[in-house]
Simulated scan of single mutants.
Amino acid sequence: MWKKIKQLIFIVLILNVIFIIWGRFFNPPITITQIGGLFEYGKLHRDYISYDEMGSNVKKAVIASEDQKFFNHNGFDYTAIEKAMKNNEKGKKLRGGSTISQQTAKNIFLWQGRSWIRKGLEAVYTFIIEKVWSKDIILERYLNSIEMGQGVFGVEAASKYYFGKSSKDLTTSEAAWIAAVLPNPKKYDPKNPSAYLRKKHNWIMRQMRNVSLK
């Protein structure tokens, strides 16, 4: 029995290694979150494109919104994590301190949710992809796989869905609208923005001025 368990663990580890190396060169064929969106909304809008095809505005907008230290950290923003933990202890509602690297690990390899098991695996995958992949690859995988609407995944599909154009052609304002729906794309809609979303959009526009792609 124990021998079979060890064999199973070994096989799982080997498959994970293969998938991580494979992911350095290719976008995932499908993710658990995308499957969930397909079942929930009966549709799956996505259009994988290369890093260079995305244009700079949408990259800057998402970095400004989600992780302004992306190119400078090792996968973890310890200041943001500490702040999130302190606020959670006080009972304040605050989004977590996850970086783009952590979100990429979750979106590509894992599932949504807040369990300690998932968070632990997320940390492991984050550490590995930061070592095996480059920052550009991590950002490309993130921007191609991130949920950006009901059944809409990736910045290219989101650009066409919300604005009828490719992501490389987005204006600064349009890119900021797409980034503004994160981290709750099922709730927020750039086509019908709430007062909060308008405020966040304006904040992202200001923050984009400070974002450098390297």
Rank of each mutant, 00 (worst) to 15 (best):
K6R: 09
K6Y: 13
K6P: 00
Q7S: 07
Q7C: 00
L8I: 09
I9G: 06
F10N: 06
F10D: 07
I11Y: 11
V12I: 13
I14R: 04
I18A: 13
I18S: 10
I18G: 10
F19D: 13
F19H: 14
I20E: 07
I20G: 05
I20C: 06
W22Y: 15
W22I: 01
R24N: 12
F25E: 07
F26I: 00
N27R: 00
N27T: 10
P28H: 09
P28R: 08
P29S: 00
T31Q: 03
I32D: 02
I32P: 00
Q34Y: 04
I35M: 12
G36E: 09
G37C: 07
G37R: 03
L38M: 13
E40Q: 11
E40W: 02
Y41I: 01
G42K: 05
K43H: 07
L44A: 10
L44N: 11
L44Y: 15
R46I: 00
D47R: 08
I49M: 13
I49H: 02
S50A: 12
Y51E: 13
D52F: 08
D52C: 04
E53D: 13
E53V: 00
E53L: 09
M54N: 08
M54L: 14
M54G: 11
G55N: 14
G55Q: 14
S56W: 01
S56V: 14
N57Q: 15
N57C: 11
V58F: 14
K59V: 05
K60P: 07
K60W: 10
A61N: 08
I63K: 05
A64G: 12
A64L: 10
A64Q: 08
E66K: 07
E66G: 05
D67Y: 02
K69C: 02
K69M: 07
N72Y: 15
H73I: 06
N74A: 05
N74Y: 09
N74M: 03
F76C: 01
F76M: 01
D77Q: 10
D77M: 06
D77C: 07
T79M: 08
E82Y: 08
K83A: 11
M85H: 08
K86Y: 12
E89K: 14
E89P: 00
K90M: 12
K90S: 13
K90F: 04
K90Y: 06
G91Q: 12
G91D: 08
G91N: 14
G91T: 09
G91I: 05
K93Q: 11
K93Y: 13
L94I: 15
L94M: 10
L94T: 15
R95E: 09
G96E: 11
G96V: 12
G97P: 11
S98H: 13
I100R: 01
S101K: 01
Q102F: 02
Q103N: 05
T104Q: 05
T104F: 10
A105W: 02
N107E: 10
N107M: 03
I108P: 01
F109H: 12
F109W: 13
L110M: 13
W111I: 14
W111K: 14
Q112M: 03
Q112F: 04
